[in-house]
Nucleic acid binder design. Structure first.
Lengths: 209, 209
DNA sequence: TTGAGGCAAAGTGTATACATGTATACACTT
DNA sequence: AAGTGTATACATGTATACACTTTGCCTCAA
């Protein structure tokens, strides 16, 4: 039970929506749960704070983040900026073998599209493309932004049911890439993200609180 | 001496080039220096790790980051992406009063342009513009990327002497903004950053190691 | 009833002590 | 002589104990 392990476990729970946004994370409680002292728990919370998933306030403990609709909007704008740039760079160096691999991951992700692990498959598809851009830090930043989004989607928005719309949107992106239509692929990705943003924001604003 | 205070102090030293990239940061040494135990030091190092200024490896301690020329290139590409977007958004909501304030900060920053605090004035100018975009997270991300750059500029590149070129580049950006030439202002900013990137990369690659 | 004050409980922050992992140097084997 | 194994020193990781802050509640007075 290293701090990294604990952070990873908590990260999964946060993203799965087990803990609602704004939930207090008690050090003593977590220490008991993981069977360690509070020190490695504190380290784990600092790690998650660095990733932007929890907020730490001195003498008042850590709590999971809570975002306003405006913040969600900003995060998606940042994702659009960073992910479209990644896609563009990837398209510039795309090989037929890459396309084959992308399509393989896409088809595989279709399988758990309706299940609880839909987010993993979705991200696997996008990451496979973005990785081609060879931008390590950019990918890390995108992943961090995406995590905060997933946390909120899991907590607030409805889970996509069967054969969701974004599967066909993935298909469209690949189709454009295969035809060398970079601009249209970027546009398709942008609208893919815009759709997700609207979906999430609508659900957040429909909340009672 | 809270962890935040310690992190802030170390951050300043890192950015001032006191500690060269790759330097080991001993917990016991820092604990003695700040007159506290290792626990708050560990917290401070985690904070800095979250900001990307130091790297922590389990059982092997923390050390200041060290970047390859490729990584510096990527960071500047990210800055161009994020900062140009901020400038564009700022230009869309710019008022005459904002322009006056921008020019005030610009003139003030000219004063310490040749001194050791040149980076503060430079950032004050850019931040004043970017803040108008009303993008909190984006600004934080830009600031984080900028810090890693400053760390490297301080460590490797020559300090700008008197009346550096970027003063006139700042002038050009403001001029375009005043005329409502958003596209040209963005282009000027991009070249401003490109110039800084070239300057830094050239110095890194000229290193012996 | 209501507000201020203070007390107590709970939780975080830090120091110290101990456990564990890593690195260096030296001896030993091949 | 080169490489490996081991022992020792040192740095980091963690647990426990204690100090401080926060917060809720209770008391008491207006």
């Amino acid at each position: 039970m290293t701090p990294e392990t604990i952070a990873s476990q908590l990260r999964s729970e946060l993203m799965a929506g087990v803990l609602r946004p704004g939930t207090d994370l008690s050090q003593v409680e977590l220490a008991q749960r993981f069977g360690v002292s509070r020190i490695p728990i504190r380290d784990a919370l600092r790690i998650l704070a660095g990733e932007g998933l929890v907020e730490i306030e001195a003498h008042r403990g850590a709590k999971t983040i809570s975002l306003t609709p405006e913040e969600v909007r900003e995060i998606y704008d940042l994702r659009i900026l960073l992910e479209c740039d990644c896609l563009q760079r990837a398209a510039a160096v795309l090989t037929p073998a890459d396309l084959k691999e992308i399509d393989r991951v896409r088809l595989k992700s279709n399988l758990d599209a309706g299940g609880p692990d839909w987010a993993d498959g979705d991200w696997a598809f996008h990451r496979t493309i973005y990785a081609l851009a060879g931008r390590q830090r950019q990918l890390v930043m995108i992943e961090a932004l995406r995590r905060t989004c997933v946390l909120f989607v899991s907590a607030y928005a409805t889970m996509p049911t069967k054969k969701p719309r974004w599967l066909s949107e993935h298909d469209a992106i690949v189709k454009h890439l295969r035809r060398g239509e970079t601009e249209q692929a970027v546009l398709a990705l942008k609208e893919h993200l815009e759709g997700a943003a609207s979906h999430l924001i609508a659900h957040i604003m429909a909340l009672p609180g």
